[in-house]
């Protein structure tokens, strides 16, 4: 379903020392539909760059990224939104809209993709219930705890029924209790048939999951194992 083919990403001027930084170095791997894949590595290993390439937020310096055989960096800019609608993204810093309530934050995504009011009224409460935030429907993000915010951002990523969920260190800001909550939620989503790509540097989570693990170091894949463990 997802395929990275000899992908290299070099940031020419963004590095503080003025030299080009190689974030990803000739990476190739494939993710099958309905797979749960964890991407692990130290900070700066290239995890976030990898996910950003998958969202077409960045262009690779060399190589190609395919989703269902479609090179997402070769398609016309006008077609990009359609590709992004197949992906749901969850971030470490939640990226919720502070001026909108929990309900509105989720409903907003449906408005963006052009859903009608009936669909919104039907789907939003359902998804909010899945992530266990029914009581918080009318609260603003600032009134939610870190765990609740992250559950809300998962609800937002789920609402348009994407084929893939990309979670970029979703538990980075959370305590262990909330962390296992979020992981349970991601596993539940995966069981319902969604491909999940999780990037994390939480050793405990990875060792408990028993799913495929891709380990990155200095922009290179050093390990790719089914039922992998966190080894750095």
């Amino acid at each position: 379903m997802i395929k990275f083919q000899e992908v290299t990403k070099i940031f020419p001027t963004n590095s503080p020392n003025g030299y080009p930084t190689t974030a990803l170095d000739n990476i190739s791997f494939e993710i099958k539909p309905k797979e749960f894949v964890s991407i692990v590595g130290r900070s700066g290993a290239g995890k976030t760059t990898l996910l950003r390439l998958l969202m077409a937020e960045e262009k690779p310096t060399r190589g190609q990224v395919f989703i269902d055989g479609l090179d997402i960096h070769k398609i016309k800019p006008g077609k990009l939104p359609a590709v992004r609608r197949r992906i749901g993204a969850v971030f470490q810093d939640y990226k919720l809209l502070p001026s909108k309530t929990a309900y509105e934050n989720v409903a907003y995504v449906m408005e963006v993709i052009g859903a009608d009011d009936l669909e919104i009224a039907r789907d939003v409460p359902e998804v909010i219930e899945i992530v266990g935030l029914t009581e918080r429907t009318n609260n603003f993000p600032v009134e939610l705890s870190g765990g609740e915010k992250q559950r809300l951002s998962i609800a937002r990523a789920l609402i348009h029924r994407p084929e893939v969920i990309l979670a970029d260190e979703p538990t980075g800001n959370l305590d262990p209790y909330n962390t296992s909550d979020i992981i349970r939620l991601l596993l539940k989503i995966h069981e319902l048939g969604t491909t999940v790509v999780l990037s994390t540097h939480n050793k405990e989570i990875i060792n408990k999951l028993g799913k495929r693990v891709i380990t990155l170091e200095n922009g290179k894949i050093i390990r790719d194992e089914e039922e992998g463990r966190f080894i750095l």
């Binding site: 800019p77 939104p81 992906i87």
Partner: peptide
């Protein structure tokens, strides 16, 4: 900027 970024990530069309 933040709202536009989120719009982009959830697949809002250019004209939206």
């Amino acid at each position: 900027a933040e709202e536009i970024k989120i719009q982009r990530l959830v697949g809002a069309s250019n004209w939206f």
